[in-house]
Design a protein around this nucleic acid. Structure first.
Length: 599
DNA sequence: CTCCCTCGGGG
DNA sequence: GTGTACGAGGGAG
């Protein structure tokens, strides 16, 4: 048996002989530093929870008539109340959607839970694993021949079958190889079409010395590598990725443009395009609006969705984003003029080479700026970076809470059904207090605002679905203004305690940050506290977002009611000291000072 | 005002 | 793939 240490980069599962095999992808540490590893776990099985109607035994009997692996009794809390559930273990993750309706239809089954948790996410939670950190696995090294779940012919690839524990190691930040790439296309007839317009350049930049442009034309620039044709260009790019083996590959709009485009061209030219560690094709996932190009074993990060989330801009072109982040303009060539620069040759072609490399460098610099916070969010939320980088903030909050719920043995609420969702959408509730601005030019303006008003209210009033008082009680409670909702003072509710922990943790990190004199340490701590802040600030919407598992109309109502109450009272209070509010919105207001200004 | 539709990034 | 998840902003009515 061997012990391996690696930086845990990505996870998925495949099916072997009808059984699920979880694959952990990583970058090795120790004597094979930087080389890729795939650790296989064949021992993990999918399960869902069943809440029995009344009789436990007859419910088990009914479930066992279906093709399930096993049924176990377990105690879980449901919105704070301990209940006995049945853990129904199934043979394969895909049995879950096949069997859950049948299970729910059984007369002795009241409800089913946790039937929509993707298998790899279930694995991460149950094993207590957090991507982007180091893990230790024990197992037996396999050859590629004996491992149908891996098709790669990469000689450096280590394949290990886990037969011991998977252990999460410390939370140190490790150096990872990051590479950016960008393609240029010759498209004289409008937008590029992959069945018609050839790729003319592929450029790369990295944190390991690689910086080049591959093209079919020659240049006096040293960084340009000239190859025979487009086929050779794609092959060379593939070769570079597989030999350099970057841990993270980034592009700008590479989910929807660069990677699909190279893939399409390769197909048209009848050549393989395989940059995954396991030798598989790139998987293009379309999930409603979001799409993702998945490169197995490396983390492919598209910076575009990250920038959309991180900045509020009118446009999100790479040029615009670059200017915003670095305060300097980037040289730009219009997309529909690229072919002219290419065809013209000479000076113009040289400028195109420069522009192409510049784009890859700009993407790399954006990545250097944005990856730390995303790696940190990954380590806090505990889902893969490839998911985190494409997640909306509400989704991050949800997955964060799902892990927290698991940690305290709370069963996770179901996602709302279509019916439930439209019902929630139909409900209106009063938002924050807004006072229309008093027209005119004002002097001596003072701004008042509450620091994270909603999270503070949630904590101080203990607003949570599990503290909401439904029946009469003699316990102590907080009464919301305007709306008829009451919340128990004790014990601390699930969501208030999670937000409280987040803010406490942030406080500790900020303190450490101020105490240290080591600039590297300071920077790392700063990213950590920023990530916690990002998450805490996204928490405000937990109760009002109709798609949310922890949605609660009563809680949302109470939060905003207290919010309005606080701001109105503060405005009134300020008036006593000679301030006159001229504009207010939700968590702050502007006032003019009408009294005497004392020096 | 509400309802419906488009569009984003990429060359 | 334990699938089918956006949201702002404009134009029409």
């Amino acid at each position: 048996m061997e012990t391996k240490h690696f930086i845990f980069l990505d996870i998925d599962y495949v099916t072997e002989n009808g059984k699920p095999v979880v694959r952990l992808f990583g970058s090795q540490r120790g004597k094979s530093n930087g080389e890729p590893i795939i650790a296989l776990d064949k021992s993990f099985k999918p399960y869902i929870y069943v809440l029995p109607e009344n009789d436990m035994e007859s419910c088990i009997g009914q479930i066992l008539t279906l093709d399930v692996d096993d049924v176990k009794k377990v105690k879980k809390k449901d919105i704070g109340i301990e209940k006995e559930f049945l853990e129904v273990i199934l043979h394969h993750p895909q049995d879950v959607p096949k069997l859950r309706e049948k299970i729910l239809a059984l007369s002795e089954v009241k409800d089913i839970r946790e039937h929509d948790i993707p298998f790899y996410r279930r694995y991460l939670m149950d094993k207590g694993l957090f991507p982007m950190a180091e893990v230790e696995v024990k197992g037996i090294t396999k050859t590629q021949k004996s491992t149908p779940s891996v098709l790669s012919d990469n000689e450096n690839l280590c394949i290990l079958e886990i037969n011991g524990e998977v252990k999460q190691m410390d939370g140190k930040i490790h150096h990872l190889k990051v590479m950016s790439f960008d393609i240029e296309v010759r498209n004289p007839k409008g937008m590029p079409k992959s069945d018609r317009d050839e790729i003319i350049m592929i450029s790369m930049a990295s944190n390991f010395g690689l910086q080049k442009v591959i093209s079919t034309k020659e240049s006096s620039f040293e960084y340009v590598e000239t190859v025979e044709d487009e086929k050779a260009m794609i092959n060379r790019f593939t070769e570079i990725v597989n030999t350099e083996s970057p841990d993270i590959i980034v592009g700008y709009s590479s989910d929807n443009f660069d990677l699909p485009y190279i893939n399409d061209r390769a197909k048209k030219l009848k050549i393989p395009f395989k940059i995954s560690v396991d030798g598989s094709d790139i998987k293009f996932l379309r999930r409603g609006y979001t799409s993702a190009a998945v490169v197995r074993g490396r983390v492919h990060v598209d910076l575009y969705p990250i920038m959309r989330r991180h900045l509020t801009l009118d446009r999100y072109t790479l040029e615009r984003v670059y200017e915003e982040l670095f305060g300097e303009e980037k040289d730009d060539i219009e997309g529909d003029e690229i072919w002219e620069y290419w065809d013209a040759g000479g000076e113009k072609l040289e400028r195109l080479f420069e522009y192409s490399l510049d784009d890859a460098i700009a993407a790399f610099k954006v990545a250097e700026k944005m990856l730390p916070i995303n790696r940190e969010l990954t380590r806090i939320i505990g889902q893969p970076l490839s998911d985190i980088s494409r997640m909306a903030s509400g989704q991050m909050v949800e997955w964060f809470l799902i892990r927290k719920a698991y940690e305290i043995n709370e069963v996770i609420p179901n996602k709302p059904s279509q019916y439930e969702y439209s019902k929630r959408r139909g409900l209106t509730y009063v938002g924050g207090y807004v006072k229309d601005p008093v027209k005119g030019l004002h002097e001596n303006i003072v701004a008042f605002d509450f620091k994270s008003l909603y999270p503070s209210i949630i904590i101080s009033k203990n607003i949570s679905p599990d503290t909401l008082i439904i029946n009469e009680t003699d316990e102590e409670y907080h009464t919301a203004p305007e709306v008829p909702h009451k919340f128990r003072k004790e014990p601390s509710g699930f969501i208030p305690s999670v937000i409280g922990d987040l803010l406490k943790e942030r406080g500790i990190i900020k303190k450490l940050m101020n105490e240290t004199n080591d600039p590297v340490e300071k920077r790392i701590l700063n990213v950590q506290q920023e990530a916690l802040k990002t998450l805490a600030n996204s928490m405000y919407g937990v109760y009002g977002y109709a798609r949310f598992r922890w949605y609660s109309h009563e809680c949302a109502d109470a939060v905003t009611a207290w919010g309005r109450d606080y701001i109105k009272n503060t405005m009134k209070e300020a008036e006593k000291y000679g301030f006159k509010a001229i504009y207010a919105d939700t968590d702050g207001f502007y006032a003019t000072y009408t009294g005497k200004i004392e020096k």
